[in-house]
């Protein structure tokens, strides 16, 4: 198996993009990544599109094939990857495997969702379609509702408090002000969302004990990367990153079947695989991020440990030396880490 490099990245600002279709957004992000990769007139061998909602919200299927034609990348192979909120990481994994196995030399991976096309409750219902169709969904469970119950368990078992959740909210919103691609670029104030009696309106309970600002906004957006073999990347003569490792594991579909719902076994196993493949330890990691739709749910005793994407300080500053990245993406039942 050969090493795989990231040679181009592209992203569009997230938010409410009424003026763009899902295909528009996927195309914009892809073109940015292809430009960044500096492939010139050369096409890619394959395109993987990560998307969960197109079939339900836009009533569009075969999205990857459509995108290949839209971008004039014919006759590149095209596949759409749907794996819930882990679709993006799954698509990267599949693109990586295609190159690592020697079948492809260059792959475009793009993920996007257009969720603001429908009302909030329809978007919530769409996301709830990943729950068990007999054991969970008919009883009205939603993902925010499930996250609320998870958080309650975390509070009881691990001592998570509203103060912890508040600290994460304030930190996340502050980071948004530094990110030109963020949907919400507004710093919050502790008084305004917590201490003041007026916070009951500013930051209402959404799924007890979670409040409005404990949950992510529902956004339209897309992001893309271009992968290649390391040999190909070296010939480009530009900085690139090497995917050092990935892991993936699956847990039971229904939460009720799990021995301990707060112990996210799939995440632990996926992370262990990724660390083993990358030949590094958690102690080697400086900064972490855990992308999720709501508060990170504790699988360790510290609520801070779970917000994690990691980058090795110093390495990134010396391109074209390989950069090691480890990220953890969690869906309900399957957890790729790449």
């Amino acid at each position: 198996m050969r090493d795989v490099a990231i040679i181009g990245v592209g992203m569009i600002p997230f938010g409410r993009r009424d003026e763009d279709t899902l295909m528009d957004m996927l195309a914009y992000a892809s073109l940015k990544a292809l430009d960044d990769a500096r492939l010139g007139e050369k096409s890619v061998d394959a395109v993987y599109v990560a998307n969960m909602g197109g079939g339900i919200l836009q009533r569009q299927t075969a999205i990857a094939s459509s995108l290949v034609d839209r971008l004039s990348l014919l006759p590149a192979a095209a596949e759409t990857i749907e794996n819930g909120p882990a679709s993006g990481a799954s698509a990267i994994k599949n693109g990586m495997l295609g190159i690592a196995a020697g079948f492809y030399e260059t792959v475009l991976v793009v993920g996007g969702e257009k969720m603001r096309e429908v009302t909030g409750w329809r978007a919530t219902d769409f996301v709830a379609s990943m729950t068990h169709p007999q054991a969970e969904y008919p009883y009205g469970i939603t993902l925010p509702g499930m996250a609320g119950m998870f958080t309650r368990l975390g509070m009881e078992k691990h001592g998570v408090t509203r103060e912890h959740l508040l600290a994460v909210s304030l930190k996340n919103q502050e980071m948004g002000t530094l990110n030109p691609y963020a949907h919400v670029e507004m710093a919050l104030d502790r008084d305004g969302i917590f201490d003041s009696p007026h916070a009951v309106v500013n930051n209402p309970t959404s799924a007890d004990p979670l409040h409005l600002y404990d949950l992510c906004p529902v956004s339209d957006g897309a992001a893309a990367i271009v992968l290649s073999s390391v040999d190909f990347a070296k010939k480009l003569g530009k900085p690139y990153a090497v995917i050092a490792g990935f892991g993936q594991a699956t847990d039971t579909h229904t939460l009720a079947e799990r021995e301990d719902p707060t112990d996210l076994k799939a995440v632990t196993l996926a992370a262990q695989q990724a660390f083993a493949m990358a030949k590094i330890k958690p102690a080697d990691i400086d900064v972490g991020m855990w992308p999720n739709y709501t508060m990170p749910l504790p699988s360790s005793k510290s609520p801070r440990v779970n917000m994690s994407v990691f980058s090795r300080r110093g390495r990134a500053a010396k391109p074209p030396q390989p950069v090691r990245l480890v990220s953890v993406v969690r869906s309900r039942s399957t957890s790729p880490a790449a």
Binding site: M186, D189, D191, G192, H198, Y213
Partner: peptide, 8 residues
């Protein structure tokens, strides 16, 4: 007077 989410 109302305190908003951003403290204003």
């Amino acid at each position: 007077v109302i305190t908003l989410a951003n403290g204003k």
